[in-house]
Amino acid sequence: MSELLQVTNITAGYGDGPAILDGAHLTVEPGKVHCIIGPNGAGKSTLLKSICGMLTIRKGEVVFNGKRLNGMRPDQILREGICFVPQERALFPKMTVRENLRMGGFILDDHKKLERRIDEILERFPILRERAEQHAGTMSGGQQQTLAMARTLIIKPAIVMLDEPSLGLAPKVIQEMFDIMKMMSAEGVTVLLVEQNALMGLKNSDWGVVLDLGRTLFEGPAGDVLADPRIQELYLGGNKAA
């Protein structure tokens, strides 16, 4: 068993509302880029939110490194090493880039270590270093997404979950985002992303997961998912042009 995170048969939904996830499962292996695809309302974001503790899991189990995560608060799960970047506005727009990074290490108690990590991150992302004292809200979409991803690295997480990192970005910029993800996984950070642009997501990933109606329909190597004729017809058809 080489899995890092194992999601078994979970049911979850918002408040007292209907179950959005109904028997979803997921296996995350260390060091790979995983891409979850599926139509609108399939439960992709809901799956990520259940894993990171923002939604109560009604049934099923989430196990990370042999530890059950069910019922833990988001900050506890973060301390375990799972970091989630929500869709679109994950930043604090009226804080500077540096302050945003400092928030990324909010759970760290060692102030000196935190400042050192911030400097390391700024060193690695020159585009952020140039803008360290600029308000995050004034940067371009791609820069903001870069900051959101870089911010997760402050605590050296085991898994980074990204909800549609490509949303609203130009194709060229999207490729830059995927390059950052590849770099992260090369360094041993496991990436789990939800992608609306299924074709592009799968091409840049190692592992593909197809989710629909709150259930996992398929899990396998990204290449296999791309090649499956039924998945091509149902989920990749409209995206051929991309």
Binding site: V210, D212, L213, R215, L217, F218, E219, G220, D228, R230, I231, L234
Partner: peptide, 10 residues
């Protein structure tokens, strides 16, 4: 793993 689409729920 087989790809099985749930049509019966309709």
């Amino acid at each position: 793993m087989a790809v099985s689409l749930q049509q019966s729920s309709a």
